Amino acid sequence: MFEEYLQKIDEPDHREKMSLVLDWVAKSYPNLDGKIAWNQPMFTDHGTYIIGFSHFKNNFAVAPEQYTMNKFKQDIEESGYTYTKNFVRIGWNEEVDYGLLKKFIDFNIQDKADMTLFWRK
Rank of each mutant, 00 (worst) to 15 (best):
Ile9Pro: 07
Asp10His: 14
Pro12Ala: 08
Asp13Lys: 15
His14Ser: 08
Arg15Trp: 08
Arg15Asn: 04
Arg15Glu: 04
Lys17Asn: 02
Lys17Arg: 10
Met18Gly: 04
Met18Thr: 08
Ser19Asp: 01
Leu20Asp: 12
Val21Ile: 00
Leu22Thr: 01
Leu22Gly: 05
Asp23Ala: 11
Asp23Trp: 02
Asp23Val: 00
Trp24Ser: 06
Ala26Gln: 05
Ser28Pro: 06
Leu32His: 06
Asp33His: 13
Asp33Glu: 15
Gly34Tyr: 03
Gly34Glu: 09
Lys35Arg: 11
Lys35Ile: 06
Ile36Ala: 06
Ala37Met: 12
Trp38Leu: 05
Asn39His: 13
Asn39Cys: 01
Asn39Trp: 11
Gln40Ala: 08
Gln40Val: 10
Pro41Leu: 02
Pro41Lys: 02
Met42Glu: 04
Met42Asn: 04
Phe43Pro: 00
Phe43Arg: 03
Thr44Tyr: 03
Asp45Gln: 15
His46Trp: 09
Tyr49Pro: 01
Tyr49Val: 02
Tyr49Asn: 01
Tyr49Gly: 01
Ile51Met: 07
Ile51Cys: 08
Gly52Tyr: 00
Ser54Leu: 06
Ser54Cys: 07
Phe56Arg: 12
Asn59Tyr: 09
Phe60Pro: 00
Ala61Pro: 05
Ala61Thr: 07
Val62Pro: 14
Ala63Pro: 04
Tyr67Arg: 12
Tyr67Glu: 12
Thr68Cys: 15
Met69Gln: 04
Lys71Ser: 09
Lys73Val: 11
Gln74Lys: 10
Ile76Val: 13
Glu77Asp: 13
Tyr81Pro: 06
Tyr81Gln: 01
Tyr83Asp: 10
Tyr83Ser: 14
Tyr83Phe: 14
Thr84Arg: 14
Asn86Glu: 13
Val88Met: 10
Arg89Trp: 09
Ile90Pro: 00
Gly91Arg: 02
Gly91Asn: 03
Trp92Gly: 00
Asn93Met: 02
Asn93Lys: 02
Asp97Pro: 04
Asp97Arg: 03
Tyr98Arg: 15
Tyr98Ala: 15
Gly99Cys: 11
Gly99Trp: 04
Lys102Val: 14
Phe104Thr: 05
Ile105Gln: 06
Phe107Cys: 12
Phe107Thr: 09
Asn108Pro: 00
Asn108Ser: 10
Asn108Cys: 05
Ile109Cys: 15
Ile109Gly: 06
Gln110Ser: 10
Gln110Leu: 12
Asp111Val: 08
Lys112Arg: 15
Lys112Asn: 13
Lys112Leu: 14
Ala113Trp: 11
Asp114Pro: 01
Thr116Cys: 08
